[in-house]
Each structure stands twice: as C-alpha cells, then as structure tokens.
Simulated scan of single mutants.
Amino acid sequence: MTEEEGAVRERLEADRRATTARIATLRGDRDEIVASASSSADDEHDPEGTSTAFERAHLQALLDQALAHLAELDRAEERLRDGTYGVCASCGRRIAGERLSILPATTTCVACASKRRR
C-alpha cells in the first residue's frame, strides 16, 4: 500500500467513524421520540408544540442520509481496492486531491459535478 492509499484509507475510516456515531445518535433520538410519543397522553404534539410526527420524520430523513453516506463509503473502499478510486465516473479524468480530501467518497470531478447541478 502506498502512502497516498494509506492516507485515503485513513480519511475514509475517519468519515466512517463519524458517520457511524451520527447514525447511533440519530437512532437514539428517533427511538426516544417514538417512546415518548407512545407514553404521552397527547401523542400528536410535544410540550413545545412541534409535531412529534414531524420530528420523527425529520430524524428519519437525517438517518436515511447518514445510512446512504455509509453505503457511499463502502463503494469508495471498493474503488480503492480495484484501483478506480479518484477517477471521475462521468468523464474518466482524475478527481483533484483537494476534492477527495473534503469529499472522500465522491465519484465525480468538480467540472462534472457542476454540470449536474445546472
């Protein structure tokens, strides 16, 4: 393993640890809301007046995003193993190291990502 590959693996693993911790926190928060809603006489609203259903849906959406990101990290590790990590899936050019440092699971270069946003 090269030094660069080692650094990539470290970034991916750090991202994985942070994402896994976020998932655990979100699941705990969601479960707490579900438990408090089922034990409350007014299961439609919490004491502050916000909808319990909205809070639960919001936490579920954040949890779904975190789980999707974890799957992206898995795919990034696969690309690292098969030698395609850092290659843009759209144009086939190298993805800039700076972009990979910030978004280690990204599959597109800046130019292709910008085209998609238009």
Rank of each mutant, 00 (worst) to 15 (best):
T2M: 05
G6W: 01
R9G: 03
R9E: 15
E10Q: 14
E13W: 05
D15K: 11
R16Y: 09
R22F: 06
A24E: 14
A24D: 09
L26E: 02
L26S: 00
R27C: 02
R30D: 00
S36K: 08
S38A: 15
S39Y: 02
D42G: 00
D43S: 14
E44H: 05
E44Q: 03
E44C: 09
P47F: 12
G49V: 02
T50A: 09
E55M: 05
E55Q: 13
R56Y: 01
A61S: 12
A61Y: 11
L62Q: 10
L63H: 11
L63T: 13
L63E: 09
Q65H: 11
L70S: 12
A71C: 08
L73C: 10
D74R: 00
D74T: 15
E78R: 13
L80G: 06
D82N: 09
G86V: 01
V87Q: 05
C88F: 06
C88G: 05
A89N: 04
C91R: 04
G92E: 05
R94V: 12
R94F: 12
R94Y: 06
I95N: 02
G97A: 07
R99T: 13
L100H: 11
L100C: 06
I102S: 05
I102Q: 14
L103E: 11
T107F: 01
A111V: 13
C112Q: 02
A113M: 09
A113D: 08
S114K: 10
R117M: 07
R117V: 13
